[in-house]
């Protein structure tokens, strides 16, 4: 991993402060999350305390500090989805997966996240699992959809 982080850092030769967020984004794109070690390396490169970088990264919704689950479940929670029942779907998902938004199940199978708006209000409520969309989801459908991933294994 060391080498790979270095490759990313090398793309930003100036090492100025404004390249911090793009660097973190690149690392997350590559590793799926920001590891402690990566933060320390970035800090050394940009001459910033790693605590400061951590403080910045936690401010934004994009960054995560642990690996995402094998199936990344993303529920759209825009206004339109809310008025068509995304709140109930969310409760059902939390119950089924036993995690809250932003968490990963202990076995690493599922992670769960809310999105502010996916831009397909006419199909609300909607869930995206690893890039696949399930539309017009009702609370009663949640179990079946999630089970299909448990059985399906690798997607």
């Amino acid at each position: 991993m060391d080498g790979k982080t270095n490759d990313i850092l090398r793309k930003y030769p100036k090492g100025s402060r404004d390249s911090l967020i793009p660097i973190l984004q690149d690392i997350q794109d590559q590793d799926g999350y920001l590891s402690e070690q990566a933060l320390v390396e970035v800090g050394r490169y940009l001459d910033l305390p790693s605590g400061k970088i951590y403080g910045l990264a936690t401010f934004y919704n994009q960054f995560r500090f642990g690996p995402p689950g094998q199936h990344h479940v993303c529920l759209c929670h825009g206004t339109s989805c809310h008025v068509t029942g995304a709140g109930d779907v969310r409760k059902e998902l939390e119950k089924k997966l036993r995690i809250k938004p932003g968490e990963t199940t202990r076995d690493g199978k599922f992670s769960f996240e809310l999105s502010a708006c996916m831009g397909a209000c006419h199909l609300s409520p909607l869930i995206r699992v690893n890039g696949r969309y399930h539309t017009g989801v009702k609370p009663g459908d949640v179990k079946e959809i999630m089970d299909s991933y448990i059985e399906g294994g690798e997607e």
Partner: peptide
């Protein structure tokens, strides 16, 4: 454009 329900700019 991060407000829930807004996706005009993106589109």
């Amino acid at each position: 454009e991060s407000d829930p329900g807004g996706f005009a700019n993106r589109a």
